[in-house]
């Protein structure tokens, strides 16, 4: 079956790694702000950004031994909640090659794995691309 990329106003091409800078936080803040403005958004996560939606994370980060009763949601949970809140206007894609290359093929069900050979199809299906970070 041919996959039809849903058209969006903006694509956030997220290539930077988590735990290096505040890039991931900025991407989530920007996605939320765009959604608040009524825009349709797609995120294409490449490289180490594919780690954000690993199924192995579970719902929460490991327990904080200093504050055992406080829940700390995983990035997978935060992204899942964002996708659930905006089912008609947000898509989150992960690069299939990067997932395989970096041992992250098990992803949460809410994100879609796409081959890098189809990346430009996504560029054509969006008004603007914000290229955030490098692999």
């Amino acid at each position: 079956m041919v996959f039809a990329v849903r058209h969006t106003d903006v694509m956030l091409k997220l290539l930077g790694a988590p735990h290096r800078t505040d890039l991931v936080t900025s991407a989530l803040r920007l996605a939320q702000a765009l959604l608040d403005e009524g825009a349709a958004v797609q995120v294409w996560a490449c490289g180490d950004a594919t780690a954000l939606t690993c199924a192995a994370f579970g719902d929460s980060k490991p327990v904080n031994v200093a504050e055992r009763t406080v829940d700390h949601p995983s990035t997978a949970t935060v992204i899942r909640e964002l996708l659930t809140a905006y089912p008609d206007r947000l898509d989150w894609y992960v690069c299939r090659f990067c997932c395989a290359e970096r041992g992250r093929s098990e992803q949460i069900a809410e994100v879609l794995k796409r081959p890098p050979s189809q990346f430009w199809q996504h560029v054509r299906a969006t008004g603007k691309v914000v290229a955030m970070g490098v692999c």
Binding site: V10, L30, A33, L34, D36, E37, A39
Partner: peptide
């Protein structure tokens, strides 16, 4: 939100 508006 200002950035989002500009971007759009």
């Amino acid at each position: 939100r200002d950035v989002a508006r500009k971007l759009l």
